[in-house]
Simulated scan of single mutants.
Amino acid sequence: MFITILVAAIIYTAVTLLAGACVGFGVGYLAARPAVAQLRDELADAAWQLAHDPLTGLYNRRGLRTAYAAFAATFPGQPVVAILLDLDGFKEINDDHGHDVGDEVLIEIAERLAHVATTYGGEMARHSGDEFAGIFPVREHGIRQIADALLAAVATSIDVQAATGPAAVALSASIGVAVVDSNDPLEDVALHRADIAMFHAKRGGRNQHVLYTPGMTMPPSEARRGLRLRDLHQQRGVTA
Rank of each mutant, 00 (worst) to 15 (best):
G26A: 04
H192V: 08
N60T: 06
H192F: 07
L171I: 09
H115T: 08
D148V: 05
S128W: 04
A152G: 12
D100K: 05
A197W: 04
N183Y: 14
L39Y: 03
D95G: 07
N183L: 13
I109R: 02
G20D: 12
L39F: 08
A19W: 03
Y29R: 13
P54M: 14
D103E: 05
P137Q: 03
T66E: 11
I109A: 01
F199M: 10
V169F: 09
I135T: 06
T239W: 01
A47W: 12
I196R: 09
D88G: 03
W48V: 15
G89K: 00
A167I: 08
R139E: 09
P137N: 04
A32W: 04
A47P: 15
R144S: 08
D130H: 07
L43I: 08
L87R: 00
L43Q: 04
A117E: 00
I109C: 05
R236T: 02
E92G: 06
A240I: 04
G204I: 05
A35Y: 14
R61A: 01
G77L: 02
M198A: 07
A155K: 15
R225Y: 10
V80G: 00
G24D: 15
I143Y: 15
D181R: 01
Q49R: 15
I196F: 06
R230G: 10
Q161P: 15
P185G: 13
P76S: 00
E123H: 12
Y59P: 12
P79H: 13
M216F: 05
T56I: 15
I107L: 04
L39I: 06
V105F: 06
Q38D: 13
R236N: 03
F75I: 12
D130Q: 08
G102V: 10
T217G: 11
L58A: 01
G215E: 03
Q38L: 14
G121N: 06
T156A: 10
